[in-house]
Write a protein that binds this DNA or RNA. Structure first.
Lengths: 174, 174
DNA sequence: TCCATTGATTATTGTTACATTATTCAAGAA
DNA sequence: TTCTTGAATAATGTAACAATAATCAATGGA
């Protein structure tokens, strides 16, 4: 059977612009093979803009998939200001309960911040990592636990004592 | 002045493999224009593998730039199991101090988890978001604050009460 | 002999090109 | 009218390319 031609102008025909999955134009970026899947997940799940809600709720029952009335939050950007100077430490014990640090919490530590008076810091004492609050007074530097059951120590009284960085955030799992 | 030719074989010459910034081959991936910079930062700063240290310290004074003795951690993967069902809420007040939730803390909430007995949940009561611990007993459902100064309420006694999700993590800033 | 210069050689890199797929439009057919 | 089919155009994944980077070895001068 012969097919008849179906010619003629098709003004305005064709796939409309912006009908891709992102709603905007894309461009190729070189990604190391091992990170391709991670980057695709990053883009697919929009991990850099998860919804943030405040205290009041919009009318009805808003969905996280909606546009976020209270804004979007990027966890990495929020928690890590200086990626090359940031690391994590697992907290142990309850010597810093007063600062909201529980046993097993994950601490975000920034080495680029200045460890000034009052900051919560990570120090290694004889090969052991501990969390303490730094106090500088009368020319002396003290490491003070936030729990009266534990003793304070001076920074200099230990031989192998190194200041690792300043704790910026505490991540507590429920 | 005429340059003399400098011919001959160059066996083994050329830029060695693996001398790129990632140490492995790359391939182009299409990225929406607005996310290009974010993806490049993600790759440059290796945000998906920041170092995690335990309690003991390797010999000397290890640098976060070294290979990570205790492993690497991806904040997004660690905190967000179900990206499409996850959102954040800013906590207010001290009604959940006992659960380690302080005023101003950022709560990670997962809507896909089942709100069973004992879980800390986010509920909206008459348009206000609150954090409470869920208790199911004797056929009744209670919302219990983790602070004796606050009253418990039953889940059904409010008209406009919606369960939003289960709190999985608390992010506390110092 | 020793080493700086210089072209040869090969990988990296950012971008363009392209073939395939997806999506919508409208002329004909039924 | 409604359905079918080809036309039109954007999206998509990847190949290709030109420019750059990094290393090797022959040459030639000190």
């Amino acid at each position: 059977m012969e097919m008849a031609k179906q010619g003629g102008k098709r003004v305005g025909a064709g796939r409309p612009k912006g009908t891709n999955q992102y709603g905007e134009t894309t461009k190729p970026v070189r990604v190391p093979i091992s990170k391709v899947d991670r980057v695709l997940r990053f883009l697919r799940e929009r991990e850099d803009e998860l919804p943030l809600y405040g205290h009041s709720v919009p009318a009805g029952f808003p969905s996280p998939a909606d546009d976020y009335a209270e804004g979007a939050l990027d966890l990495n950007t929020y928690l890590v200001r200086e990626p090359t100077a940031t690391f994590f430490v697992r907290a142990r014990g309850d010597s810093m309960l007063g600062a909201g640090i529980h046993d097993g919490d994950l601490l975000v530590v920034d080495r680029s911040l200045e460890a000034s008076d009052g900051k919560v810091v990570i120090v290694s004492i004889n090969g052991e990592l501990t969390v303490k609050r730094l106090r500088q007074a009368k020319g002396e530097t003290w490491l003070i636990p936030e729990n009266p059951d534990y003793p304070s120590i001076t920074f200099q009284e230990q031989d192998d004592t190194h200041l690792w960085g300043v704790v910026t955030n505490v991540i507590h799992s429920l």
